[in-house]
């Protein structure tokens, strides 16, 4: 198994992990967004609550969720390692910052990632932690027994303008992270092709705007319709 150790300690091996976990998280975002769009249905939150109940009880989903946590952690930890390694490799900075044709996001992935990580903790604190510890949650019954009124929790958080603003900022940061991260993940895997790379890059940029925008609609919608 020496080869595996060699691989994962090599620069490209570590970038490989960043790439694969990144792609998984990109996929996760889509699923998460589709689910959250239930918030928009005008049924007093029933669809959203039933979706939440399904997600938190289905064994398969729960397994994937565990994996998701692992991937987020791996992505973050290796990202931090890369950040320090790269900082050391660069040594000192130039007196004048280069004005060249590189994206701002690509040069600030670690900072963007750090903010996103904080954002995730906040987000989990608002919901996951409360649901798990049963603190400050209310319940509803649509006829199949009592389930958590997740919708109510969302409304509570998003009605607060400060929290709402935090979510919007977090999503903007996410957009920048994806702006670079999407296509970068494919480049790291060596998936580059004269014909397909422009498509990947195009899709990546659309994704980086559309998905965070989709998420951002939700707190705004709730803030302006419920509070």
């Amino acid at each position: 198994m020496k080869w595996l150790a060699n691989f994962f300690t090599s620069s490209i091996g570590r970038k490989f992990i960043m790439s694969l976990t990144g792609i998984f998280l990109i996929l996760f975002l889509i699923v998460h967004l589709i689910g959250n769009l239930q918030l928009l249905s005008s049924d007093g939150g029933r669809a959203f609550n039933e979706y939440t109940e399904f997600m938190s009880t289905n064994a398969l989903i729960q397994t994937i969720a565990k994996g998701n946590y692992v991937f987020i952690l791996a992505h973050a930890i290796i990202g931090i390692m890369l950040y320090f390694k790269n900082k050391a490799a660069k040594g000192s900075k130039y007196a004048v910052a280069a004005k060249n044709d590189t994206s701002w996001a690509s040069k600030n992935m670690a900072i963007l990632g750090g903010i996103i990580f904080a954002f995730i903790l906040m987000h989990m604190g608002h919901f996951w932690l409360k649901f798990k510890t049963n603190s400050g949650v209310s319940y509803v019954d649509y006829g199949d027994g009592q389930i958590i009124d997740a919708y109510a929790s969302v409304v509570t958080v998003m009605s607060n303008p400060i929290w709402m603003a935090c979510y919007i900022i977090g999503l903007i940061v996410l957009a920048f992270h994806l702006w670079h991260g999407f296509a970068s993940a494919f480049q790291t895997l060596g998936l580059r092709h004269k014909k397909y790379t422009p498509i990947i890059e195009g899709v990546g940029k659309i994704y980086a705007i559309v998905v965070p925008l989709g998420f951002a609609i939700l707190p705004l919608y709730i803030f302006f319709t419920q509070s």
Partner: peptide, 22 residues
């Protein structure tokens, strides 16, 4: 070559593309 590159203390590529530009 990658092993040697790592040994020399170069950083990891994060696809910024400043290399290509310069």
């Amino acid at each position: 070559m990658v092993a040697q590159m790592d040994k020399e203390g170069f950083g990891f590529c994060s696809n910024i593309r400043a290399c290509e530009v310069e």
